[in-house]
Amino acid sequence: MQLNAGCKLSFEALSPTPLVLMLRPRSGAGQWIIREEYQITPAVIVTEFTDMYGNLCQRVVAPVGPFSIFFSATVQTADLIDVAPGAPYTPVEELPDDVLHYTLPSRYCQSDQLGDLATQITKDTEPGYDQVEAIRKWIHENITYQYGTSDASTSAIDTADKRIGVCRDFTHLGISLCRALNIPARMVVGYLYQLDPMDLHAWFEAYVDGRWFTFDATQEQPRGNRITVAYGRDAADVAFTTQFGPMNLNDMQVWVDSAQNDVEESEKKAEEAPTLSTSAGSTNQINH
């Protein structure tokens, strides 16, 4: 499916404030960027770099006063995500070098403290994909999704204890429980079509049978039509905005809509357009 997705962020900078933005998705597995638009008001100098995880990042300095960022894109997405019940565990000694660090504890994912819970959840489960699915299902059934119950300091340990949170917290817990079993897991942020309530979203991927698979503990069933913006060890690596100074976020809008109507309208216009032989200038075009 083709999706139109984007966000608008409105800030108030109290002093000139450096920012690192992470809002641009890139074409890759399961998605193709057809069109994108990026507007920053007021206009400032922007430089872009690719971080160690392959994410596109933009550096700006916001001047004092109102500062807004608008991003939108049309993206061809996969309608389904791959599932592989029974896919085997990949032994640590066989992991690629660039995957190995996803087995380690990180700031919000204290996997070294969650081994007992991970073992309890996955007992009598075959190592590999089935363990990760057992973890995803357990989180979905045992952690309550509720806004306003966590903040930027909430970790996987907190969520395991309080049994409440939002997508970021579900994701951190899933990652931690996988890593406790020596299964590499990473955080993914982006957009999900028909997410309710609509917002920027987070889920996780686990590495089994020599590849990454998608898992989303906030959803009852596997769902496609996702737009990935960034990958990382946890939320510290994938913040959409990182500010280095006093700055207030006043408003945030997020949207994900089907682009099918736009496609149908374009096709209709193409059908109604004059043919080459009757178009103005067509004779010269044909001759030359």
Score class of each variant (00 low, 15 high):
M22C: 15
M1Y: 05
Q260G: 02
Y231S: 11
K162W: 12
H101Q: 13
N287V: 15
A5G: 12
M22H: 02
V99P: 08
I121F: 13
E265C: 04
Y207T: 07
L276H: 08
Q219K: 13
N225I: 00
M22E: 14
L19F: 09
L9S: 07
P222F: 08
E48G: 12
Q2T: 09
V254T: 12
A156P: 09
W32A: 07
D234P: 11
N55Q: 07
G28V: 02
D161M: 02
A43G: 10
F204G: 03
V188D: 01
T275H: 14
Q285C: 15
V208L: 00
A13D: 05
T90H: 06
A270Q: 10
S15Y: 11
E37P: 00
D216H: 01
C57Q: 14
I45S: 09
D151V: 01
I81R: 04
P105W: 10
T218G: 00
G190R: 09
C57R: 15
V46Q: 03
Q146W: 07
R226Y: 05
R186S: 00
Q146G: 11
G6P: 04
P246G: 03
M247A: 11
S282R: 13
I139K: 05
W32V: 07
E94S: 10
Q76T: 14
Q2H: 09
A29C: 06
I69M: 04
R59D: 14
I164M: 02
L181A: 13
S111V: 04
H288S: 15
K123D: 13
T17R: 06
L192W: 02
T214G: 01
P85T: 08
R163Y: 00
E12I: 08
T90F: 01
V188Q: 09
R136G: 10
S68H: 02
L9T: 05
T149N: 06
